[in-house]
Each structure stands twice: as structure tokens, then as C-alpha cells.
Design a protein around this nucleic acid. Structure first.
Lengths: 139, 139
DNA sequence: TTGAATGCAAAAAATTTGCATATTG
DNA sequence: CAATATGCAAATTTTTTGCATTCAA
């Protein structure tokens, strides 16, 4: 926890209880939209956090790389702890079905991005769009 | 163009000038947010399209699989013609830098998704988040 | 202490919906 | 003709901002 504090300090930021609660909520939730996170935080026994604080916390924690987010549902972003990311999501653009595959499925892509662009990809929880078996068959 | 009409007909939908203009704008634009698309459509000589019509057109065309969208900027969706998708995007969650790589970089992933889930992935224009060379180095 | 963060309220954006009317097939 | 789509305006929903105040370091 004080490693966390240091990480923040290193950028002139502070470890506030609000940020800690957002992280905690995310740990419990796995992943969720800003709204769901606000709800979860509200259920942790403490007081309710205003939406603006949740948004600001998500933004700063994202900058730090502690959390990430994707757009599985094509609308609102879904946040998750960087460490929690253990698989990637695929979602059907037609029926909304969501599936998962192990991160290893993207190993080659990750390597290629690193080699060619020096880019550290966070495919974990990345949302790949497309058509599921049923919808692809029906079209 | 009448292939397009038939495609729509097959689902009980109609080829309206509004939908055609949205497709045309997208062809010119490459990709853009609903707002940018509305603007582009407005510049095609015809009358301005109300936002609701643009949203509805984007939704129906998406269902048809004629267009797709991603979230390169982490905020608003960016739409593109399905046929226009020739590369995939990576974007740095820290500085916002956006890079591209050929679709082939994701071939293995696409194959695996098809084999394991029967999922037809549209990685084209998919946005992979992470850290660019500079930001990864600085952290 | 003192600058970063919060809380609140208000503002701005972004998206959706209802419904009468116009249009496509 | 009949059913789908549009246009508009209003309502929602989502996200951002200003600012005085609080709090972490």
C-alpha cells in the first residue's frame, strides 16, 4: 500500500482514501463502468462518492497504469485493475454476446507490436469486436 | 448500390438517402465520430442530418455489418466502413499517441478466435491500448 | 504549510425517445 | 398501401468544470 503511495508521490500525486476505495471496489468488482464503480464504492461502508470524484480517480489511476479499461458493450467504458487482467474479451456486434480467451492467444500480436513499434500492449481485457458463431452463421 | 438495397431488404430495412449519405461520408472520412460524420454529411451538398438520424443510421448499418467502430480516443466511438478497415490501431493510454500495424499482425489471434470460439473477429481498426515506446520507457 | 484533491452544484456533451409525418418498396 | 425511417423537440444519460474547502505529505 505504501508502494502505491510512493508510486503516486513520484508524480506529485497523493494517495487519498477515495482513490484507495476506487481501487478496492475494482478489486471486488473485477471490472465495471464508472457508474457501477461508484455504486460499489458506496457499498463499502463509507460515504457515497460523487461521480466527479470517481471520474477523476479513474483518470489519474489510468494515467499511472494501475487500471485499464475497455469498451465491451460499445458504449460505456469498463475499468479493471491492471493486475486483474487475465484474459481478453471478444464481443459480438450483432447480439452482444461476450466471450473470453486466454491472453496467450494474443502473444504473437503483442510481440509484434513490441518489436515493430516498441509498444507495450495491454491486450488484457481488450475488446475485440466481430460476429459470434451464431450471428456469423445467420448472415 | 442495389446489392446494398437487397442486403437491407433481406432484413426488412430500406435504403434511404440518409443511410446512403452516411455511408458516403464514411467513405470519404475513413473514420470518424458520430459528430464528425454528421458534419461530413452536412458538407455533401444535401441538408443537415439531425443527430438522431445519424445515430440511427450508424446503429442499423452496424447491425448489418457494413460498418464497424472502435474507441481509439477512449471516449467517443470512431466508425469506419467495414471494407475500409486495412490496419489496426494501437493507442497509448498515457500520451494518446496512435500507431498502426498491418492486419496480418493479428492473424494468429484471429485464427485462434475462429478455431476456439467460432468467432469472426473484426480486428481491423480494433484499438489496442497500452504504452508507447516513450511512455513505457519513462515509467 | 501548501498544493493536490474533494464535494457540490451547475454546465456541457452525448445519446435516446416519442410521435406526427414523409417515404420506400 | 403498409410498414419503415425521418425530423424535431424534449428528455436522458454521461462526463466535465468551477471553486471554495479539506486534507495528505
Amino acid at each position: 500500500m505504501s508502494e502505491l503511495r510512493e508510486l503516486l508521490r513520484a508524480r506529485g500525486m497523493r494517495l487519498t482514501p477515495q482513490r484507495a476505495r476506487v481501487l478496492e471496489a475494482l478489486r471486488t468488482l473485477g471490472h465495471g463502468s464508472p457508474e457501477q464503480i461508484a455504486e460499489a464504492v458506496g457499498r463499502d461502508g463509507g460515504s457515497v462518492l460523487p461521480a466527479s470524484t470517481v471520474y477523476r480517480a479513474l483518470e489519474s489511476l489510468s494515467e499511472l497504469g494501475l487500471i485499464g479499461h475497455t469498451h465491451v458493450d460499445h458504449r460505456t467504458p469498463s475499468y479493471h485493475l491492471a493486475e486483474h487482467a487475465t484474459h481478453l474479451h471478444v464481443s459480438c456486434r450483432r447480439c452482444g454476446w461476450i466471450g473470453e480467451v486466454p491472453l496467450s492467444a494474443a502473444d504473437e500480436l503483442v510481440d509484434r507490436l513490441r518489436d515493430t513499434l516498441g509498444f507495450s500492449a495491454d491486450v488484457a481485457h481488450a475488446a475485440i469486436h466481430g460476429l459470434c458463431r451464431d450471428c456469423a452463421g445467420a448472415s
